[in-house]
Amino acid sequence: MPKLDRFPLTRIVSTPALLDGIQTSTTAIVMRTAPDELFWLGSPAAPVINDPHAIIEHDTSFVGTWLSTQAATAWVSANCEWQLPTTRPVFAQGEVAGLPVKLWIEPRRMLVLVQQPFAADLGERLQ
């Protein structure tokens, strides 16, 4: 069973227009989880957003693991009913192995993230 690590990230909830304007980084992973929400993972830190009503939350509830392309392909093929996007890097989310997962797919690896309440089941279902 792959070891699951905690992936602290910043959740930014704001207007779609303001989130559209955020400059992404070449080093941080930026996942647009919804029109009004964005996950910022890694450094540099998430940029300041010009929205006094924005919700900026440092979220430590996500856990996951990096899978090699080979392992990711096998896992997705066995557990995912929907087709993953083909561009790289790319963010995708949906049900895989019966769990609500967020995927960050790079050319040579894939990050699988779930929130902590699903962690034990993800561990079992990655076997």
Binding site: R11, I55, Q116
Partner: peptide
Amino acid sequence: LNVRILNQTMS
């Protein structure tokens, strides 16, 4: 409405 919503149940 002009609101931002965050579900914090699991976080």
